[in-house]
């Protein structure tokens, strides 16, 4: 898990430019599934065929980034955010583009730090003229944080743990999944960070009986953190609600029951802001029961996102148990009132 997560975390893949991360993931899973394919939105699908319930598991593989909007005469790059970026977190960061070009983030003269906005920042790639800069970077290119993973105790720090941690769990689950009747569609979704776009179209294509998202969630266990019940290291969460979805009550119960039966520690999660792929999944067509397994993550959307490896292992166990349990849709989600 450790090596896999390191590899996934360090791979480039901002929203809309997921081809590199998709290739890395495809290499990991292609020998364990019946087919893999991609679509117009950049989603990567991996299918394990079966005759039972059609289950979709989504883990978004995109990460936040910075899109170049202008090259000035002296070779500095102006940029805008792809997904949720704080200008304060960006100060002094190193960034990397798809072609490997690197840069650092500088700031205009500023009287008050709390007035910092993205417009006052720029990327410096070491070029001295526009012509030189344009050899490496074009308007529209997207950079991500450039950061190596660090292992600290049983925890890992790095960029894009949101949501390569979820991707790592899903990759492992595919590799280790016991034989099951269920037809499993693992989807490594694109463009989650900019509005759950990949999962919206992939769910429409698959039209599953139910959908599960594997993503990270915020925690409330750091000094003076916002009020939240989730802690790092106490197991994956079973999501109840966030701004994008109220998880199907039966799915929440099922996940809790499976966790208890298998003695997997878990926490309930109510996230007051933010959304996940389940938000798009459950609204597809006539409505698809959806749930979420989240991996607690500190310092989300910074280059120092921290996850706990135990949480990942437990999330993996829970996901595998869920996917291999027989699912009688008509009994579990009755369509008629008794």
């Amino acid at each position: 898990m450790k090596e896999l997560l390191k590899k996934l975390s360090e791979t480039y893949g901002p929203s809309g430019r997921e081809a590199q991360i998709a290739r890395v993931i495809r290499e990991e899973i292609k020998d364990y599934v019946d087919e893999t394919y991609t679509d117009n939105m950049g989603n990567l699908y991996a299918v394990k065929k079966g005759n039972g319930a059609k289950i979709m598991v989504a883990a978004h593989m995109d990460e936040i980034g910075m899109i170049v909007t202008h090259l000035d005469d002296k070779g500095f790059l102006r940029f805008s955010n792809v997904g949720g970026l704080s200008p304060h977190v960006l100060l002094g960061q190193r960034v990397i583009f798809a072609n490997g070009s690197q840069g650092t983030i500088g700031m205009e003269k500023l009287e008050e730090l709390n007035k910092l906005t993205l417009e006052k920042l720029f990327i410096d790639i070491g070029a001295t003229t526009k012509e030189e800069a344009s050899k490496y970077v074009k308007v529209g290119d997207i950079a991500t944080y450039h950061r190596e993973v660090a292992v600290v105790g049983n925890r890992m720090i790095g960029k894009a743990m949101d949501n390569r941690a979820g991707c790592a769990v899903l990759v492992k689950a595919i590799q280790e999944l016991a034989i099951t009747d269920n037809e499993v569609y693992a989807v490594f979704t694109s463009q989650e960070e900019v509005g759950l776009r990949g999962s919206r179209v992939s769910t429409y294509r698959i039209n599953p009986d139910l959908g599960l998202a594997v993503d990270v969630t915020m925690v409330g266990d750091t000094p003076e953190a916002p009020t939240m019940s989730v802690s790092l290291g106490k197991g994956p969460t079973v999501k109840i609600k966030d701004a994008s979805v109220i998880c199907h009550p039966r799915l929440k119960e099922m996940l809790s029951e499976i966790a208890e039966k298998n003695e997997i520690p878990y926490q309930y999660e109510v996230l007051t802001a933010g959304g996940t792929d389940a938000g798009a999944i459950h609204l597809t067509k006539e409505g698809i029961p959806a749930g979420v397994i989240s991996i607690p993550c500190r310092y989300v959307h910074t280059p120092g996102e921290m996850v706990d490896l135990e949480d990942l292992e437990h999330a993996l166990k829970l996901l595998k148990a869920f996917l291999s349990a027989p699912l009688e849709m008509r009994e579990i989600f009755p369509c008629h009132l008794e």
Binding site: H248, E286, G287, I288, P289, F333, C335, H336, L337
Partner: peptide, 25 residues
């Protein structure tokens, strides 16, 4: 979490309609 109120609604409506169904959501 509308299942309780759904039952109340159903009980009152059913004598006026030909068919009732509930979807998964």
């Amino acid at each position: 979490y509308e299942e309780y109120v759904a039952k109340v609604v159903r009980a009152a409506f059913c004598s006026h309609v030909d068919e009732v169904r509930q979807d998964r959501m």
